[in-house]
Structures are given as C-alpha cells and as structure tokens.
C-alpha cells in the first residue's frame, strides 16, 4: 500500500506492507535510527514519537495508520545541532540520561507532555512520563530536566500533593 507521511517536516513516501510497524518505517524504510525499540510490547516507551503532535508508541502503530499524518522524531527536534531544542538542552543541563537508550522516547514523551501541560508540577511530570521506563533508573534527573524545560527551577517547582485533583493509577479517587 502506498503511503505518504510528513516526518520531521519533510515529505516521505513508500509502498509498504500493511503489517509494517511505524517504528520500522522510521528506522528501516526512511533510515531515522533515533527512535529505539526496547520492549516491543507497548511497555517501555523507548519508541515514543509525536503523531500529529501527540506522544504515541511507534511499536504499536502500523505505518499505514499514520498515512497522510505528521510524525516528529528526536532527529526532528533539533535539526541544527548548534541549537538544541529546549527539552534536549534541559536533559543535557540536568544530566537526564545515563546510557541514553530511553532518551529519545523520554524526550519525545516530555515534549508531548509539555505541549498539553506547559507548567507541570513534579508529580504531573512523573505521571506524564509513566509510559517510559529508564533501565538505568535515572528518573530523578529526568524529572528535573522536564521541570527545567518548562521554565521552572527544579529545586523549587511545586511537588503537587495528594488532593490536587490529579489522579494516578493505584491512587484513590473520588468526589471530594
């Protein structure tokens, strides 16, 4: 099936099998290798990209589902290596990575989160990134980096307490 997709602002096209996953389209068909495949089971978030601006796990999308839509990968965030995207710059400033395997997915999930919630509390950052695992477990600095990227001082950002109207799985919710 012939598909066309805007990737990082550039038109791409290919004749693909319907079963081709978006992650494989990005990596193998058009050759953008930043998007990592970690678990391949929708759990780790390493494959996260933006689809029409929203974070999605590209291992759990068919390329044909993204036909005629717009995808942004880590490569597209900072086309000019001399001027990093604010989220990428904040990951660097706060040392928000160790081995770096989770980083492209983590950064794309953070960009998607900040688009929906430009000044999150610390708890909102943690919950907003719950679909992304870091096996080096460097979550602390990742959360600080996202707070910094949102223009907040990671040392003084609001923690976000229970009862702030925010709900996470495993937490109790109800009418107050």
């Amino acid at each position: 099936m012939k598909i066309e997709m805007t990737v990082n602002g550039e038109a791409t096209a290919a004749d693909v099998e319907p079963r081709l996953l978006l992650a494989h389209y990005l990596r193998d068909v058009i050759g953008l290798k930043a998007t990592n495949i970690g678990c391949d089971t929708t759990s780790c978030g390493a494959c996260t990209v933006l689809l029409d601006g929203e974070s999605v796990k590209s291992c759990t999308l068919l390329a044909v589902q993204a036909d005629a839509q717009s995808v942004v990968t880590m490569e597209g965030l900072s086309p000019d290596p001399g001027s990093l995207h604010p989220v990428a710059a904040a990951f660097r400033a706060e040392h928000g990575l160790q081995c770096g395997f989770c980083t492209p997915g983590m950064v794309m999930a953070a960009v998607g989160l900040l688009r929906e919630n430009p000044t999150p509390t610390e708890r909102e950052v943690r919950e907003g990134l719950e679909g992304n695992l870091c096996r080096c477990t460097g979550y602390h600095n990742i959360v600080r980096a996202v707070l910094l990227a949102s223009g907040q001082d990671p040392d003084t950002a609001r923690p976000g307490a229970a009862g702030d109207g925010l709900v996470a799985p495993g937490f109790s919710v109800g009418s107050a």
Partner: peptide
C-alpha cells in the same frame, strides 16, 4: 487510570 499517556492518546 488506563495505561499511560501514549496508550490514552490511541
């Protein structure tokens, strides 16, 4: 409470 943000976007 369903999954995570990426799951809920789809």
């Amino acid at each position: 409470t369903v999954g995570d943000p990426q799951v809920r976007h789809r």
